[in-house]
Amino acid sequence: MDIGIIAVNALTLACIYGMLAIGISITWSSLGLVNLAYGFMFAFAGYGAWQINAWCSAAHLALPPVATLAIGVLCGALAGLLVCALAFIPIHDKPNFTMRGMVATIAIDLIGTQGLLWYFGPRAKSLPEIFGYWQIEYGGIVLTANTAGAIGSSILLLGAVLLWMKSSRRGLEIRAMMMNPHAASLVGIGVRRTGLYVMALTGGLAGLAAVLLSQTYYVSPFAGFTPLIKGVSIALCGGLGSVAGAVIAAVILGINEAVTAATIGGQYVLITQFALIIAIIVVRPRGIAGILDRAREA
């Protein structure tokens, strides 16, 4: 077994799924919304990037590869805003919001993916190569362009987002809303506007993940479902609402996935993963965050 390959794979998966998990985590804790429309956001970003690429090539415009990435992020953010406008803003102050919000996102997912299927047809699309075909080798570890690019860009974006959340006023706003939405409105934070920021942000993360994943897989209406499940399980494992927990969980589950795939076989990935998650959660109902953060309990 080559430790290097396992490590690289684990890191790549951790980066991509970690972005989704952090999105889910932030959405749940600041908006109280379980966003199951990730599949749709994911597919929307992929199709958006593909469609704009197709239009540009039809018009004989050469898009730089980074533009594809940016378009994916923007399309993801747009889908996030759409989900926010439909599933959060109208009902966030109504009774039984958590359940209704979750079902609303499922409905959006159903409509969105079926709509994409109906519009684009069942054939999967592939995006152009973004990072080219180079590779670097260091101490026996081979980093291909794809993995290096995925790791680099996701860490870059994630780092920027976390820094922004830590230091800026908007970030304080979002974190305040994560702690206590009622008190947040009392200090003058607009819940709906913050909701829009949060959803655009998480949508952008999902869009980036979609474009990065489509380098290895294809763009299809249901491509987002497996990443959603992975993201949800990482978010659960890390503890909903905890960014640090999600990062650790992403690394743990990434290692688990890479090790399982390399030792037992790809089809057992989900089984070992869920065994791991259930084990963690049965010990700590709040996931890894429950171990990290002692100040959470009121």
Binding site: L172, R175, A176, M179, N180, H182, A183, A295, R296
Partner: peptide, 14 residues
Amino acid sequence: EIFHGLTVEEHLDS
């Protein structure tokens, strides 16, 4: 109505 996880300083900032 407090934000449990924020420090006192961040709290005053908010």
